[in-house]
């Protein structure tokens, strides 16, 4: 697997990390301007709608990262590819942080809109379970010290946790929940006005770039750790 040659990736990351940082800051600035100043108030929620521009992208990214980690974990578990596990490990922290951001901003939005900080409905509870899976994954890396065991256990946590992903996605369609169903649909027209869609997309791009940046830094650190330990792989 020449593609995963670590010294090559190492120098590549160092080269492009600053580009990603600049690109992220640019998009974030643009997204925040759109979200906080240029986009209109909502006809019902007023200015609370602006919380959505952080809440929804965070939720998307956290689901996306976990799905990716699950996919990598399947490959790791089946083919014993230890380079992929480092990618999965490096993705986890930003995924966990975005899950927490989605939960907290949702709570802050819920109080003025619904009239409650928290509701044990299917969407919110399944999102909390996702946060626990991320937490469990990160803890497992510290708890299990035997290298073969830690690779197996963390992959299995991801694969089992992936069952929760469709539950989160479809919870609002399958059960009656306090949380509203998705406004953005793939098959039919979205129920969100264009002027609000622009900041949403920009913020999603900004958060994705931020995750990429944190991932690159974390991945770099993992590679350095491996080098110092004098191992050619994990």
């Amino acid at each position: 697997m020449d593609f995963f040659n670590q010294s090559k990736i190492f120098s590549l990351i160092n080269k492009y990390q600053s580009f990603v940082l600049i690109f992220f800051l640019l998009i974030l600035l643009l997204g925040l301007t759109e979200a906080l100043f240029l986009s209109p108030q909502d006809y019902l929620q007023g200015d609370s709608v602006r919380i959505m521009y952080v809440h929804v992208p965070s939720a998307w990214i956290s689901l996306g990262i976990f799905s990716l980690m699950a996919l990598l974990s399947i490959l790791v578990f089946v083919f014993k590819n230890k380079n992929l596990i480092i990618i999965s490990k490096s993705l986890a922290p930003s995924g966990f942080v975005f899950t927490l951001i989605a939960l907290v901003t949702g709570s802050i939005w819920g109080k003025p809109t619904w009239g409650t900080w928290w509701a044990w409905d299917a969407r919110i509870t399944s999102m909390l379970i996702l946060a626990f899976f991320y937490f469990m994954y990160l803890l497992a890396w510290r708890v299990f010290e035997n290298k073969d065991n830690v690779v197996k256990i963390t992959s299995l946590i991801c694969i089992i946790g992936a069952i929760n992903i469709p539950l989160i996605k479809f919870s609002v369609d399958w059960w009656s929940t306090l949380h509203q169903p998705s406004s953005i649909k793939i098959l039919s027209e979205s129920t969100i006005h264009e002027s609000m869609l622009i900041p949403l997309i920009l913020m999603t791009a900004a958060f994705a770039l931020f995750s990429l940046l944190i991932f690159l830094m974390k991945y770099n650190t993992e590679l350095i750790k491996i080098k110092i330990k004098g191992l050619d792989r994990l």
């Binding site: 209109p40 108030q41 909502d42 006809y43 019902l44 929620q45 709608v49 959505m52 809109t113 619904w114 009239g115 409650t116 509701a119 306090l178 509203q180 169903p181 998705s182 406004s183 129920t191 969100i192 006005h193 002027s195 609000m196």
Partner: peptide, 17 residues
Amino acid sequence: VKILAKHDENYMPPELN
């Protein structure tokens, strides 16, 4: 004993509404 408002999936500016 408690009332919660349920928001729907429609987001739009006031003028449009």
